[in-house]
């Protein structure tokens, strides 16, 4: 059994109180093994984004525990959480969240600079990552000159800047068309094959279907879990009504 990278116990986040109490995340137990790709699916408002923010230290839980890479992180100070986001976690957002005034390579090297790497090392790493996501030629372009799919690939490269143990993606294909979605899925698959641990929240069945494990979430809680790994049926033809 491989090591567990992420583990939560009774993770809860509530907003408001009394009558208007909202349980955005309600007692979630989640374990993610190293190298695993886990998709969390559910309708909008089910709490999946909040879950991701809690796990990545962007938000604090009301109750429960979070262990990341063998360390309890739900009680950390804001300062330590920032360091955690910097070194252990990489974020990919639906809206890309690239800085428009920075070029592609400057966007990608930013986390490394924030982590105090030397400008030279940060630039070298960024260039390498851009090559990996197939955008080396666009290094000096501004994000506004890129297509949606290219921007999301830049964002993925940025998320990898500090070699995080866990990449968290929030609706990474939500703003993309079909072809660009395929691009990003391929990229995730490559990361997966390289052993990167990934947690993706989405309502896109295409992403969910390519994960190792699919968790369904409703009203802040996990309601179902499907393990999708295993041999293929080899019956793609049935899908196209070629038989019978």
């Amino acid at each position: 059994m491989s090591t567990t990278i992420l583990s939560t116990r009774g993770l809860t986040k509530t907003y408001g109180d009394g009558e208007s109490l909202v349980r955005a995340v309600d007692g979630v137990d989640l374990d993610v093994a190293a190298g695993e790709t886990v998709a969390v699916m559910g309708p909008s408002g089910c709490g999946k984004s909040t879950l991701l923010h809690l796990v990545g230290g962007l938000d604090r839980p009301t109750a429960g525990e979070i262990h990341l890479a063998g360390r309890r992180v739900d009680q950390l100070t804001e300062r330590t959480l920032a360091r955690l986001r910097r070194t252990d976690v990489g974020f990919v957002f639906q809206a890309f969240h690239l800085m428009d005034e920075l070029t592609v390579v400057e966007n990608v090297e930013l986390p490394a600079l924030l982590a105090g790497r030397s400008p030279r090392a940060a630039r070298a790493r960024a260039t390498e990552l851009l090559r990996r996501v197939g955008l080396a030629a666009k290094a000096a372009a501004l994000p506004t000159a890129l297509s949606g799919g290219q921007r999301q690939r830049v964002a993925v490269a940025r998320a990898l800047s500090n070699e995080p143990v866990l990449v968290l993606a929030d609706e990474p294909t939500g703003n993309l068309d079909s072809a660009a979605t395929l691009d990003v899925l391929r990229l995730f698959e490559e990361l997966h094959e390289a052993g990167q641990t990934l947690v993706i929240v989405t309502h896109d069945e295409r992403i969910a279907a390519t994960a190792d494990r699919l968790i369904s979430m409703r009203d802040g809680a996990f309601v179902d879990e499907t393990r999708l790994t295993g041999g293929t049926s080899g019956r793609l033809g049935a899908l196209a009504e070629l038989e019978g």
Binding site: A82, R85, R86, M99, P111, L114
Partner: peptide
């Protein structure tokens, strides 16, 4: 907005 992104990328509130 860019402050939020910068913090998501690991800048501390103090920084």
């Amino acid at each position: 907005y860019s402050s939020a992104v910068t913090r998501a990328l690991g800048a501390t509130p103090a920084q």
